[in-house]
Each structure stands twice: as structure tokens, then as C-alpha cells.
Design a binder for these strands. Structure first.
Lengths: 402, 402
DNA sequence: ACTAATTTGTAAATCGGCATGACGAAATAG
DNA sequence: CTATTTCGTCATGCCGATTTACAAATTAGT
């Protein structure tokens, strides 16, 4: 569990782990569990026909999963079909729980999700974290985590892992925050500051948001670009159902796409980066507003009231986003672009100019742009579900932990 | 073999093929073959220790590969080490051959590569193909293919597949050219116009170039961006040792990255696309030269002679490339950027300004930029090797074809 | 109602594939 | 010349999925 969850791709045939029968068993356990979770209550025979194994083989696999507490038998189905009714199986509601946590600029949040995907417990605490050092913030977060874990344990769950979403760049070790400008954190190993008894994974808020979109969004494809924003503009690239992380884990930095190469200087050293046109600070300035804690809320409120200055600022930001996204879309050819995170609240005023710009610069049909249904809670849900996903991907590794 | 070679990623655990013992055997055959090919002559024991199987298991796998004609026994090694010497194994020099073919703007080329990776036969024909219709061009190409195949068969090889590189966009069915502006082809299924007795794969020239770089380049990482150019500017994205293709197979279109969003109108509908600053035509115009057949050669020649106009034009193109690449590098976080294809000949004059621009716009260490050792023959080699790669990845599928 | 047909789940036998352990073969070290 | 080391192979065993058979539970048909 120290390795990052959900690699973009398993290693090639030359370097893979030895392909032995235990590995086969483990993969088949995963396939059974995955299909039962994905396709609702299912009989052993139904699972067998879906994954291509025989009923006998599935029987033994199911037995093992039931013994591990990952599957539950609901009893005989009552269908109108001919033949003996099957015995319905579901993923357990009392097995492992994924603990998701989030450090936002102005809040902390924790939740526990069970194998079925339902949130069983949650805790939120408002309060500005900008400029506070990691230790007190994570101490506070640890309180919330204990709270949520206690509640989950009361319902018969046990924490299988803790996934933390932060608004910043995270190293590939999945524990060290390299740079989180809006918190003021840099090069900090978070693991020592969090509960040591639960396996930890730290990742970028945008990445978790994208995974939530992938797993929870309705009709979201396996190849898309997920754009979110907290001050900087973070994006996440999903390729064939997996996250593209990059060599250092920094993939998805949309904020410093050159939009006007001769524009004003940016902190990154370049000129005319997207962030200077569509970043929160820039939009606030363009709208003639003062910096505030809840910038997105303020912008959305004013825009909804019909404030022309704010609307114009958002239109311009949408155009800039459109330019940057044109480049990204040309390079990646995704099936769609999803606006998520805090950005989704501003979508009504960003979207028209964004889509215009994208369409204008694209030969042929433009890449469709949609708004996340999950909105700001995407990252937290994605984090919790990433833990659940790890269990589903290798149930054997989590077997005896109840 | 009708499915595209080298998907970016196998399907998730829920949808994968049933994981049965035959599958395990197939994968282990592949692993044995891969290691022998990659690490030179090797004894059974050496292979076993490398891939983590026992000597006994490897013995049976090797037997099967020898019977299939994919491996050869060289006889006992003569080492200075204690103990019975092993019997060296090599991949066969008389097994399957990968037939690579290329339709360029001003040439046709075909080659045959054996399992060892050595080119065993080749044929090239110069002649402008711009504006010619697919049928006569591919008829001519078919002649060359027959020639090369005959020669290869004379040496005991048999064609395991034909891979064709074209300078244009290819659909994900790996047979249909969607758009090849410099040939004037569009929406053409090439399969009926090529030998029907060899399994066919068609792909973008830039993609094959990138694969060649991945497989044949020295020290090339598993995550990089490969930039080539023929008129348009094509790039290919390699993520964790696999090609990123995109939903429609169009990933890697660098040519229409917005470089100066208010710049002149481009054929794609946008403004100030990279192609207008670093495309061949644009550079020729900026250098004050007339259109010509061998544009790259002309530019390189003049630049080498010290022509200041040409050099300035190339410097500016490098700067524009740098701007576009900044965006791509930020988005993908690759380990390096490789200049390949025709572009590699112009590298000496493009590189300085390109690297300057990239470094200026990057916070922290800039992404290293290198020049392909393979140069213009990358695509052809990549095509041939992609066939060989398919054999290595699943030897069982090619077993009885000798 | 009673039988036939159909489907489910499991048990027993079988097969395929790798691991284990032992052995002869072929080299080096002393 | 013997002891040691390593290689390749064989016999055996284990593990996991398949095959085959069968009892159980339901619907369809008379």
C-alpha cells in the first residue's frame, strides 16, 4: 500500500512478476468481486457467465470471498424465469472501509465509504488553512479521521486505507507534498503527521476528482481530461481508465500553458500563462473584486445577480481556458473534457466562451465539454473510493484484516 | 492481428479475458522469449532466475519455443565459471519476419526485420507521391513488399505481419487513413490495396517513429514525447512504455497548439497555430525560399552553409516549438522530449532556441530535449519492429505459421 | 397434480501447469 | 583424481480450473 494506487499501466511482459498460479487466483478473485460490485446482486452462475469461468470455479472463489467478509449471500432470488433460482450475492456492507480525507484552503473533510460505494460516515470542519503549518492542520484532521473511523467501526467496518487529497503537487511516493502554494506547504512528508495504523496515500486533489468522475460519474468515458481549480488550475488526464501521472507525478499542470506568449510575466518564469487569465486571483482582479476567503462563492453569487463586470471576467477566463484546452485536446484526443471541483460552480458563465473558443480552433467536431455532477465533493469521494478500488483490485491482499 | 498493436493499457480487471491456465502459459512463453531476446544468449537457468520461474518450468517453455522455431540452441557456453556450462539460447534468425513499409511524400520504403532485430532485406524507391491517388502508390509499394518478402523467404524467414507508416491520421481500426494532407488522401481503407496474405497494421509515421525510439534508442525512457514533422507537426506520446492513442487515434497533434492566439488564421479554423510558425512551409517562407521537394534537405544545407536568413527562420521555429512544447510538457510531465523523423536533421539550429524557450517557461529544472539517433529511418524501423513486438508479446499466436 | 424441461450449486474426477526434489552430466578447484 | 558447483531433466506433488454428473428448485405443459 505504499506504492501509488492505480498506476497508468502495469509493467511490460519482460519485467512483470512471475506468472504463477497464485497470481491467477488473485486476479480471478478480483474479477469476481469487481463484477458483483458493478452489476448488483448476482448469482454465482451469472458471475461465471460474465467473466468466462465455470460455475464450479466461481463457487470456490465466492466461498473464499465470503469467508474473507467481502461478499455476502442474500438468499435465493425470486425471478420469473424457469429453472432453479440462484442465490444472490452482494459486496459486503460490513467489510473494509475506504477513508477519504481532504485538506482544502478553507476546510477539512473526512468520510468513510464501504465496498458498496455508500458513504457511511463523514465529518467536515470549516476554517481557513492558508498559511498554517502542516502539523496543526493535520492534527486537526487526525481528530476528524478518528471520529469518522470510530463511527465506521461502530457499524462493523474496518479502515482498509486512508487517502488524502491536497491542493498541490504530490511526489510519486504518495506521501510527500512537493508544493502547495495556497497552503504554503512545500517538501513535507505528511505520513508522520497522520495516523500510523492506517496505510496512507496522498495525492493531488485534481487527480482524486478525476478518479471520482471516472468511477462515479454517469456515462463518463475512460479517456477524458478533468479540469478543476483552486487558485492554480489543475487538470488530470485519464487514459484508458487510469490516471496519467508523469515521471515526477506532476502531469496535468494546465495552469502554465502559454496562452499569450508575450503576455505579462508569471511567477513560473514564463509569460502569459493560463493562470494569469483564468486563475482565481486573476479573475477576481479582472472583475474588480477584493481578495476574499470564498472567492468562488463570491464570483458565482455576483455573476448570478447579473454583475456585468464579473460576467465579463468569467467570459474572458473561459476564452483563455478554451485556448489552453485546445492544445491539450489536440495532444491527447480525449473523449470529453469535464469541468469539476470548484470550477463546476462557475461553469454557467465559463462554458459558452470556452466552448466557442474550442470549437473555433478545432477542425471537425469539437471535443464535448461537460460539467461534473459531483462538483466540489469529487476529490473527497475520489480519495475514499481509491481505497475501495485497491481492495477490489486485489482482495487477497486485504483478506485477513477484519 | 486486426486489433491495433500495443494498446496504451490493457482493460481493467472487471472486463479482462478469463484468466485461465492457458493464458498463464502464453504469458510465460512471452516472458521467456522477451528475456532471451533482450539479454543476449542465455542459458535456461539464467532465464529462470531472471523471470522467477524454476528451471524445470523454463525448460518446457523453451522446448515449446524451439519447436515453434522462435528460439535456437547454440550449444554449450564456454565460460570461466565453475559448474556445468549452460546451453546458450538465442532468438531464431530464421523464424518470423516483421515487414515494415513506409509511404513518404517523396519515397516508398520497405524492410524486413527478424526476431533478433536485424534488418534482413530492404527496398527503397524515390519519387514524389504528393497528390497521387492511393491505388497506384500502393500498387508500387506492393511491388517492393513482394520483393522484400521474397528475399526474406529466401533466407528462411516468413512474414508474420505488415506494418505501414503513413504521414497522416489513421483511424483506430489501423487500416483507414482519415487525413493525410501532404499526400492528399482522406478516408481511405488501405487494406484492399495491399497484399491480403499478410496481416496488416497501418499507423501514423510519428507513432512508429516514437516506438522505434522506445525500442531501439539508447537510454530512451518509458515516458517521453516524440516530435517529428512532415509538413504538419506530428508528435507521439509514450506513457509507461506504451503509445497514447486517444479516442479516435488522433493523439499527438502538436501542429495546432495555439502559439500566438491572435496570430494569422490557420486552415484548421484557429489562429496562430504552431504549424504556422514551425511547419515546413512556414519555415521555407520565413527563410525566403521557394517550395521544393526536399525541403528539409534544402533547409539543412543552407543552414550548414551559414545562410543567416535560414538560420533565423529555424531559430524562430525553435522558439515556437518551445512554446508549444512547454504546454505539452506541463500537461504530461514526460522524462524527456525527443526530436525525431525529418526534424532531427534540423536539430542543430532548432535546439538552442527551443531549449531556451522551454527553460524560460519552466519553474525548476526544464525537461531535457534530445535528438533521435535513428533520424528519418525511425518510422520504417518502428513499423517493422512493431510486428516483431507482437510476436514477442504472444508467441503462441504465431506458433504454427512456419 | 404430475411430469418434463431448465437452471443452479456442488462434488468427484481429470487435466494443465508450475514447484519440488533428486539425479546424471559437465565444468572448475584443490 | 576427487569434491564442488552448476545445468538440464525427470518423477512426483500441489494448485487451480475444467469436465462430468447429480441433487435441488423452479416453470411449462398436459
Amino acid at each position: 500500500m505504499t506504492a501509488p494506487l492505480h498506476e497508468a499501466r502495469p509493467a511490460g511482459p519482460g519485467r512483470a512478476l512471475p506468472d504463477t498460479q497464485q497470481g491467477m487466483r488473485r486476479r480471478n478473485l478480483a474479477r469476481v468481486l469487481h463484477t458483483v460490485r458493478a452489476e448488483g446482486p448476482l448469482s454465482r452462475a451469472a458471475v461465471a457467465s460474465r467473466i468466462g469461468l465455470t460455475r464450479a470455479a466461481v463457487s470456490t472463489l465466492v466461498d473464499e470471498l465470503i469467508r474473507s467478509g467481502l461478499l455476502e449471500e442474500l438468499g435465493p432470488e425470486r425471478p420469473g424465469r424457469v429453472g432453479r433460482p440462484g442465490s444472490a450475492l452482494t459486496v459486503s456492507g460490513r467489510g473494509p472501509a475506504g477513508i477519504g480525507a481532504e485538506v482544502g484552503v478553507d476546510h477539512l473533510a473526512v468520510c468513510a465509504v464501504d465496498l458498496r460505494g455508500t458513504t457511511r460516515s463523514r465529518a467536515i470542519r470549516q476554517g481557513a488553512n492558508r498559511g498554517r503549518s502542516p502539523r496543526p492542520v493535520l492534527a486537526e484532521l487526525t481528530d476528524l479521521i478518528r471520529q469518522v473511523v470510530d463511527e465506521a467501526e461502530g457499524e462493523g467496518l474496518y479502515p482498509a486505507g486512508l487517502a488524502l487529497a491536497v491542493p498541490g503537487l504530490v511526489a510519486r511516493d504518495a506521501r510527500t507534498v512537493v508544493r502547495a502554494p495556497n497552503l504554503g506547504w512545500h517538501d513535507t512528508d505528511l505520513a508522520p503527521l497522520l495516523p500510523a495504523d492506517i496505510p496512507l496515500t496522498v495525492d493531488n486533489e485534481a487527480n482524486f476528482g478525476a478518479l471520482a468522475e471516472l468511477w462515479l460519474g454517469d456515462g463518463t468515458p475512460r479517456d477524458f481530461l478533468h479540469v478543476s481549480a483552486e487558485i492554480g488550475i489543475g487538470a488530470a488526464v485519464v487514459v484508458d481508465g487510469g490516471l496519467l501521472r508523469g515521471t515526477r507525478g506532476f502531469a496535468g499542470e494546465l495552469g502554465h500553458m502559454p496562452v499569450r506568449p508575450d503576455g505579462p510575466e508569471c511567477a513560473c518564469g514564463g509569460r502569459g500563462c493560463l493562470e494569469q487569465y483564468a486563475g482565481e486571483e486573476a479573475v477576481m482582479r479582472a472583475a474588480g473584486l477584493e481578495p476574499d476567503e470564498d472567492r468562488v462563492g463570491l464570483l458565482a453569487g455576483r455573476a448570478a445577480q447579473g454583475d456585468e463586470d464579473v460576467r465579463r471576467a468569467l467570459r474572458d477566463a473561459g476564452t483563455a481556458l478554451g485556448v489552453a484546452l485546445t492544445g491539450a485536446v489536440n495532444l491527447l484526443d480525449p473523449e470529453s473534457v469535464v469541468l469539476g471541483g470548484e470550477l463546476s460552480g462557475l461553469a454557467p458563465w465559463l462554458l459558452p466562451s470556452l466552448q466557442d473558443e474550442l470549437a473555433r480552433r478545432t477542425a471537425g467536431p469539437a471535443c464535448p465539454v461537460s460539467v461534473s455532477r459531483l462538483g466540489p465533493q469529487g476529490p473527497l469521494l475520489g480519495a475514499a473510493h481509491s481505497v475501495i478500488r485497491a481492495v477490489l483490485d486485489d482482495p487477497a491482499a486485504f483478506a485477513g484484516q477484519a
